[in-house]
Design a protein around this nucleic acid. Structure first.
Lengths: 143, 143
DNA sequence: TGAAATTTAATTGCGCACAACTCATTTTTT
DNA sequence: AAAAAATGAGTTGTGCGCAATTAAATTTCA
C-alpha cells in the first residue's frame, strides 16, 4: 500500500515553494524601487534593450502572453517607467521604450543580484551547477 | 561596464519559469480531475490526512496563509471534495475533511507522479539529487 | 477574576497568470 | 486584386498569492 502521491516527494512542489520564497525575498528590496517581482523581471529585459523592444519579443523572453503583459505594462507606464509606441512599419506592433526614469532606475538596482546571491548561501560553483541543472530540466521538458 | 542585471544569470528567473512550466504541464492532466494545480497540492496533503486537518496545519504544509486557503477551500467544498467542521474543543479551529468523492479521487490521481516523472527526462538519481539541492537552497534561505 | 495579548480563520483589495475572445493589421493564397 | 489565413496587442473572467484588516475564541497574567 505505497503511493507516490506524497507532497515531500514532488519536484513540482519544491519549485512552487522556492518560487514563492524568492518572491518574498525580493519583495521588500523591490519595494524601495516601487517595483513588483514580475515588473523587476520585465525591467531586466528592458535594461538590456534600451532602444526599445516589442511586446511580443518581451513576452518571448519572459515567457508571458499579452494577457499578462498588457495590464502589467500599463501599470508601469502609469508609474512613468516606460512608454508605448506603435511601430509605423507595422501598426500591429507596439514598442516598449524606457523613459529617463526607467533607465535611471537601473543604477538603484545594481546592488540587488549580489545581495540575493548572498542570501542563497551557495558557492558560485554550486549556483552555476544548479542553474545548469535547471536549464537542463527546462530543455528536457520543452524537448 | 559589466552588470549582473541579466535575466539569463538569475536563479530566481529559472525558478519562476520552471514553476510556470510545471503548472502548464499539470493543467491538462488535472483538468480530467477538475482540479487546479494549487488544489492538487492541497489534495496531496489531504490524502495524507484522511482523518482531517486544520486550516492552519494545511497552510503550514503548503506554505500558504488563510487569505489564499479560505477561498480555495471554499471552491473545493462547493465541488463536493471536502467539508469544513469547527473543532468543538477550540471553536477557532476549522477542520478540513475529505468527502467520499474527495477520497475516491485519489485513485484517479495515482498515475500522475509517474507520468510527470517521465516528462522531466531525469534519471531517478538525478531527480533525487536535484530535490536535495533545492531542499538545501530552501534551508539556506530560511536560515 | 478580568483586562490584555495571542491565536485562528475569514474578508478585502491588488497584482499577476492564463484561457478564451475580440479587433485591427499584415501576409499568404488563389 | 480579393478572399483567407496569420499575426500582434488588448479585453474579459477566473483563480491564485499575499498584505492588511477584522472578528471571534482562547490563553496569559496582572
Amino acid at each position: 500500500m505505497s503511493t507516490n502521491l506524497l507532497l515531500e516527494k514532488q519536484l513540482c512542489f519544491r519549485l512552487y515553494s522556492l518560487n514563492k520564497l524568492m518572491c518574498r525575498l525580493y519583495a521588500p528590496i523591490l519595494k524601495d524601487l516601487d517595483l513588483t517581482y514580475p515588473q523587476y523581471l520585465a525591467m531586466l529585459v528592458l535594461w538590456q534593450n534600451m532602444k526599445g523592444i516589442s511586446v511580443k519579443d518581451l513576452g518571448n523572453q519572459l515567457d508571458l502572453d499579452s494577457g499578462t503583459l498588457s495590464p502589467l505594462l500599463k501599470r508601469m507606464e502609469a508609474r512613468g517607467l516606460l512608454i508605448r509606441v506603435r511601430q509605423s512599419s507595422d501598426e500591429r506592433v507596439v514598442i516598449i521604450k524606457l523613459t529617463k526614469e526607467g533607465k535611471a532606475l537601473k543604477q538603484s538596482a545594481e546592488h540587488i543580484p549580489g545581495e540575493m546571491f548572498a542570501v542563497t548561501g551557495l558557492t558560485p560553483e554550486k549556483l552555476f551547477s544548479l542553474n545548469q541543472d535547471l536549464d537542463q530540466l527546462m530543455a528536457n521538458i520543452n524537448g
